[in-house]
């Protein structure tokens, strides 16, 4: 039998993982539903966001500047997202091999940025200061305030994203373009502008996630590689497309992974997760929450 403490510890670490994954995967899923491409550079966006924030806050040297650092990083990621959409995605829009070609081009962007980060910031290990310091007691166990912050901020960010897509004109425009680009054009929606906004938004989400993760882990150019694989698994689990499905799947995977780490160990957890994924796909090829599409 598992003790109550062990259970709370598991729950908390699962929630932290789930929060990180949910923010990461929702950006990936947003780009997929709107542009119909899979962005393999999404993971390196995460690392880049963390590095930019590190540079800004390190130069300033004050915790007070961390908010500024986040803002700068977010702005930088938005710009980069737009640039990348323009250069390596838009030229292929509407081509029959688009999915395959953009997998290639975004992989190339990943290689480029990962190496670029390594050359620019060097091999010395870095860590971001936590946004909030100290310890917090939660469910009878003590965790770092940063972890508690992540658990709280993720649902807020995701709710904001949902509200944006649901209530604002631009958000609805993004959904419209994803669901029927031709009909969207005929009511005066500029599809390219929506694509750019989507890509920028997704890059910002990735960058912000990187900042959160960057104070829990050491910064490396490959910071986002492993979360990216998890995000893939999540997006499949979530049934590709619906934001709610993706977010739900992210928390489930986070909790399952935390459970697997305590039971089968850190190294076997990814394999076990993958086997579960395959088992689920064999039973439900459309994902856990997905609808069967003709």
């Amino acid at each position: 039998m598992m003790s109550l403490d062990a259970f709370s510890a598991l729950l908390v670490s699962g929630l932290v993982l789930g929060s990180i994954y949910a923010m990461m995967a929702s950006g990936l899923s947003l780009v997929w539903t709107t542009l119909g491409i899979f962005n393999f550079a999404h993971g390196v966006f995460m690392a880049l966001g963390a590095y930019v924030a590190w540079t800004v806050s390190d130069a300033a040297g004050l915790n007070l500047w961390l908010g500024f650092a986040i803002a700068m990083s977010v702005a930088f990621m938005a710009g980069l997202g737009i640039l990348i959409e323009r250069t390596v995605v838009r030229p292929f829009y509407g081509q029959r091999d688009m999915l395959l070609i953009t997998v290639m081009t975004t992989l190339a962007v990943m290689m480029f940025l990962e190496k670029g980060i390594q050359m620019l910031w060097g091999p010395r290990l870095k860590q971001l200061r936590p946004i909030v310091e100290g310890k917090v007691s939660l469910l009878g166990i003590t965790i770092s305030a940063q972890e508690a912050f992540i658990i709280v901020i993720a649902p807020l960010v995701l709710a904001a994203l949902w509200a944006f897509l649901r209530w604002t004109s631009t958000g609805r425009g993004i959904r419209a373009v994803g669901q029927n680009p031709d009909a969207a054009k005929l009511i005066g929606i500029n599809a390219s502008a929506m694509f750019a906004v989507t890509f920028a938004l997704s890059a910002v989400l990735a960058g912000f996630t990187g900042i959160l993760l960057g104070s829990l882990r050491l910064l490396t150019p490959g910071l986002g590689a492993e979360p990216l694989i998890k995000a893939f698994i999540i997006v499949i689990f979530g049934g590709m497309g619906s934001l709610a499905g993706t977010i739900g799947a992210a928390y489930i995977i986070g909790l399952v992974e935390a459970f697997l780490i305590t039971t089968v160990g850190f190294y076997w957890a990814p394999s076990a997760l993958f086997i579960i994924l395959i088992a689920v796909l064999l039973v439900r090829p459309e994902g856990l929450f997905g609808r069967r599409v003709a």
Partner: peptide, 18 residues
């Protein structure tokens, strides 16, 4: 086919896009 996963009211409100 309009926007399959959008509600009727949302669709109408969205259409006043320009």
């Amino acid at each position: 086919l309009l926007f399959p996963q959008m509600e009727v009211m949302e669709t109408l409100e969205l259409a006043a896009f320009c």
